[in-house]
């Protein structure tokens, strides 16, 4: 059998060192152990040396543990390492892949090593269960990131700093020459984004265009007064400004 080499992937140096020390004791036959700080580094090293065994932290910067696992799954034996990731542990317990919990218990690691040695004797199986588990894990961890992509922050120069204004604090936006005026709870600012760009990026549930040059936050509207000739005027809560509604956009307020 070829000499076995292993790769440890973790962004925390002390934990890499600790696992390396444990492996040195439990698996003295390992001819070499490499270190990587993140997913891309791990893949680069793997391409160079083709480690048979990879210990992989799930929570990592850059390419995350799951994507790294996908890239390695059919070419190396994987062991996941995690401190506490409730969903991850649930997924592992279904048995598709071995996992270790930090801090690593030497006795538990010995079991893992024994299992790995048995697997190394046979061929690397293409495991559909592993793929399924990775999908499931990605889905569960992904729950923390919402897919929705509406604009949530307006970046605007105020004084000599760039403010990040939460869109829910914005009252209205109005085209102003080459710029767009943003009026929000604490004042007004000019931004470069056009009304046309903004209306496509803002959540239509809360923001509507009322005029060629005006977008209003529906949560701030106190009154819509119908005028002559299919137009209207919008009065805002806590704001003296009266905004126009032109004929083209009046349909937003038909039911109101």
């Amino acid at each position: 059998m070829n000499p076995v080499i292993a790769l440890i992937v973790d962004d925390e140096p002390l934990l890499r060192e600790r696992l390396r020390a444990h492996l040195g004791t439990v698996w003295p036959a390992l001819s070499r152990i490499d270190d990587a700080r993140n997913g891309p580094e791990a893949l680069e090293l793997f391409e160079l040396h083709r480690h048979q065994v990879v210990f992989l932290d799930i929570h990592m910067p850059g390419l995350n543990g799951i994507d790294t696992a996908r890239a390695l799954a059919r070419r190396a034996h994987l062991v996941f390492v995690t401190a506490y990731e409730q969903y991850a542990v649930q997924a592992f317990e279904q048995g598709a892949v071995d996992y270790l919990v930090k801090p690593v218990d030497p006795a538990r690691l010995a079991d893992t090593v024994e299992r790995l040695q048995r697997q190394l004797a046979g061929p690397l199986r293409a495991d559909a269960a592993l793929d399924a588990m990775l999908d499931q894990l990605a889905g569960r961890l992904g729950q923390r990131v919402r897919p929705q992509q509406w604009l949530q922050w307006i970046k605007a120069s105020v004084g000599n700093s760039v403010r990040l204004i939460p869109v829910e604090q914005v009252h209205f936006m109005r085209a102003d020459d080459k710029y767009t005026l943003v009026a929000w709870e604490e004042g007004e600012a000019l931004i470069r984004k056009s009304i046309r760009e903004l209306i496509e990026q803002l959540d239509p549930e809360h923001f509507v265009q009322t005029h060629r040059s005006v977008i209003v936050n529906l949560r701030c509207v106190s009154e819509v007064v119908r005028g002559i000739n299919e137009t209207a005027e919008i009065h805002l809560r806590g704001h003296d400004e009266v905004l126009p509604v032109s004929r083209t956009y009046l349909h937003h307020f038909r039911q109101m």
């Binding site: 020390a21 401190a83 409730q86 930090k102």
Partner: peptide
């Protein structure tokens, strides 16, 4: 946050062991 706590504890364990 448990993730923070257990990762930190794992680091402490590594320091003690070393």
């Amino acid at each position: 946050e448990p993730h923070f706590l257990f990762n930190t504890l794992a680091n402490v364990e590594a320091l003690v062991a070393a």
